[in-house]
Design a protein around this nucleic acid. Sequence first.
RNA 1: GCCGAUGUAGCUCAGUGGUAGAGCAACGGUUUCGUAAACCGUAGGCCUCGGGUUCAAAUCCCGACAUCGGCUCCA
Length: 646
Amino acid sequence: MSREVSIKLPDGTLKQVAHGTRIIDFVRTQIGAGLAKAALAAKLDGKEVDLSHELTADAAIEIITLKAPEALDYIRHSAAHVVASVVQRLFPGTQVTIGPVIEDGFYYDFAAEKPFTPEDLERIEAGINEVLAADVAFTRSEMKPADAVAFFLGKGEKYKAEIIEELAAKGAETVSLYQHGDWIDLCRGPHIPSTGKIGAVKLTATSGAYWRGDHRNQMLQRIYGTAWRNKDELAAYLHRQEEAKKRDHRRLGKDLELFTFHKYAPGAAFWLPKGAILYNILSQFMRETLLGHGYDEVKTPLIFNKDLWLTSGHWDKYRENMFLVEEKEGEPAEFSLKPMNCPSHHLLFGSTRRSYRELPLRFHDQGVLHRNEERGALGGLTRVRQFQQDDAHIYLAESMIGDEIARLLTLIDRVYKVFDMTFTAGYSTRPEKFLGTAETWDRAEAALKQALDASGLPYTTNPGDGAFYGPKIDLAVADSLGRKFQLATIQLDYLAPERFDLTYIGEDGAQHRPVVIHRAIFGSFERFIALLLEHYAGALPTWLAPEQVRVVTVTENQIAWAREVMLALRARGVRATVDDSKDKLGAKIRLAQLAKVPFALVVGDKEVEAKAVAPRRFGTEDLKQMPLERFFEIIDAEARWPRIET
RNA sequence: GCCGAUGUAGCUCAGUGGUAGAGCAACGGUUUCGUAAACCGUAGGCCUCGGGUUCAAAUCCCGACAUCGGCUCCA
């Protein structure tokens, strides 16, 4: 007997097909051969399945073709399988582990005898291209977990067996396997119909990676790759990567003479004159902004006795990241450079009797911090050992948390809008090991979440990712290559007030325990500047540009007027220079553009005559000649610092 | 810290066992020029550092240091 199932197409039409019809056949016969050819996978009631999946129940169907955004995920995941099959052919004895899709590509982790060399990668890539050309079909099958474990153990694949055992422990009744050619892998799917649908694959990098990301586990060998619908897309992607590298803040820092590093001070930047200007503007901008938002700036010591860190808990939890300082040579280090400002602020809070009338009490501190990051983790300005934060600690009563967080989110949002930067927010909740009571945590999480929801900012929730002392909100910004870095943070802390025995006198005359909010908006100036530079590709807005105006003369005959213009600009606070070199005008313009100076003011005989300038704005063609007074108006308006509403 | 790659002039890079190179920048000179590179010349190096192999090392080997990519994305 033949039963029928009812399949609903995206446009609403219902089709009846025999129970057990494969999707690919359904599409070919009921929709069209063209779609059947273009199809890669399908969604049944939103669930991703292969085209070979059999229709056994009424469902709404959606066909995913090459054009769909998801297509790239399927192509990449299928490409990862091909990589693994080629690696196992070329390097017998290598075990497979996992091979997920990531942003712009995929990777596959192998338990290999030896790391893969760049030459190995070339051989593997050649093997991949053979498989793509052969257009081998992917086929799906299922097994009972116990059988699958035996199957993979029989092939010496102990990582796969471990994964299946975990799936079984979670209650999986069957696991799926995918095969192309004679190579088979445990896989959730779906896959594209055949390897020929993978247009272009390139292996991009190798690296060591710990099994399950834990450094106590065995180190696996990872191969990164990218895959696209066709060669043009791949070429376009590689071109984008090349372009992105030009925005790398390390490149820009060198080209624009902002900062440099020396191997005698790994992870600590030297700020060159132009970089120091940028750093100081941001620092002062934040100082004034926070002053306007009820913060009090403080300055606290750099070096502290270890007793402070014993009290705060850093000595136990954070000592390996602290630079210890010995007071007398040969004696055990009793001091440390501070890795964070919070403990010193707690000392300040506790240094006098506090009243509820002072709350929320906000200490802002841009003090220099040192953290002994692992050597391998250092990189540019985004991962340093010495830095300054726009750090603050807010002491308040628990009832004030909601308002304060809401205010903070508004402030953060406004600050980032000034720089035209977009961020992603993450909300992290109670970890498994936490301090305090579940009840306070519930209240704290509710307050954070409520403020976050009210703010209208989109955010992701990271359950269990909170600090052990409280939940937090983190804001991340992506660099030119799409890597995300945490900048702003808001963390609630119930523990520190306990450890430092902080109290204030309430309206009722009794002592109360405050709550602390740790928060930063830029995060560290170093990291913020890195992302700021990449965001603007080095072409900073006028108010931030270290050199705002460069007066360029056509010949040496205009040097006197050029200097007069420069001095007049400097007199009104504009950072101006003169290029009075013997270069031709074209060369001077080029240099000004390469230095990304917002305005090049051309002065020739005509301008001298008219007491005028001919401004050329960065990245544009020439502006018309104008009286110097007129240019003053333009530059004054652009050089003005943004104000953040209170 | 771990895996891999890299380290040559201020910058970008060539040079694979036999006397250290180019372009740009710098410096000197000529040119006085109207919106992205005028011309000629000069100088610049412990080839990251320390060991080793060799008649001979930037080059081969070992180690240190630094830099770069990665070490959360879970069949």
